[in-house]
Computed example of a mutant assay.
Amino acid sequence: MSKRSVLVVTHTGRPEAVRSAQLVIERLSEAGICVRVLDGEAAAIGATGVDVMPSNAAAAEDAEVVMVLGGDGTLLRAADLTRSAGTPLLGVNLGHVGFLAEAERDDLAATVDRVVTRRYDVEERMTVDVTARLNGTVMGATWALNEASIEKAERERMLEVVAEIDGRPLSNWGCDGVVCATPTGSTAYAFSAGGPVVWPEVEAMLVVPISAHSLFARPLVVSPRSLVAVEVLPGTPRAVLWCDGRRTLDLPPGVRVEVRRGAEPVRLARLHLTPFTDRLVTKFGLPVTGWRGRVRQPAYPSPPLEDSQVSDAPPIGGEASGDQRG
């Protein structure tokens, strides 16, 4: 039987994350689980008795789970390592909103215990594959968990683009950019650009123009089977492609960016089957004062009325009997 192993990915720029990583490593090691850390983080963590792994996909191969200590940015970085390996990510939020994280800093010890006892579920999140072409030649190909955004590279000038859905032109936009997002990314950049929140189990893609000068510039929700393309028109300023705010590619005028459903999802470990609505309320601090919810049946319902009581009662919405009239 092969030895159990867990990869720990840490935001080493935060002292709290480093201390958390040391605690996680200690507790996992005490449970007999082999702990891996990335070569670029090992010195900052300073732990002994760990396996130092190269910062590539091999780091997550055959690991049970990847524990991510930081914010959503750290989790997106870890997703680069785990997507091809299929290893689930378990985020512990040490950042701000932490929408992708499953646990908070106060739950760290309990989270490690859940990993040790394998008490977590795994869900798959849709990704997008992104290809940039110039005159039919592929300039670059990448992917995103949250979003791919085509943005202007020069602040003083608008970006002129034309959007295409499933091989048909949709609209020209003079804009600051276009965000193509997944449901997971609907609470990230697309949300800030005015896009809708989409529940994670909904399979769809979002197309959200950024500050567009157009009568038709509403956010769009399209089929997950659709091919979305954004063409940067000739004569327009140069643009830049950003994927998850991490991977970038300069885009010359005339380039075509194609976005489609990703071939490989990202797997997230879940400790709680919390409704997404509750997650929205908690993360965004939404006011729900006055909510009563569905009226539940009392534990001891009143006995049914007898026939004589039913016959004596006035009809609902009807007139009372003669002797009851005023």
Rank of each mutant, 00 (worst) to 15 (best):
L7A: 05
V8C: 13
R14G: 08
I25F: 10
L28R: 01
V37P: 00
G46W: 05
M53D: 09
S55H: 14
N56S: 09
A63T: 05
V65T: 13
M67G: 05
G70Q: 04
D72M: 02
T74S: 14
R77M: 09
R77Q: 14
R83Y: 05
S84M: 14
A85Q: 15
P88N: 13
L94I: 03
A101T: 13
A103V: 11
D106K: 00
L108D: 04
A110N: 06
V112S: 13
R119W: 08
Y120W: 08
R133W: 02
A141C: 04
A144R: 10
L145M: 05
A153H: 01
E154F: 04
V161T: 03
E164T: 04
I165D: 07
R168E: 14
V179K: 11
T184Q: 09
A188S: 09
P196C: 11
P196G: 11
W199K: 06
M205L: 10
M205F: 01
L215V: 14
P219I: 12
V221S: 10
L233Y: 03
A239R: 00
W242K: 02
C243Y: 03
L251G: 01
E258K: 10
G262H: 08
P265T: 03
R270W: 11
F276H: 15
L280D: 13
G285P: 03
R292T: 09
E306I: 02
D312K: 12
D312V: 07
P315L: 12
E319M: 09
G326C: 01
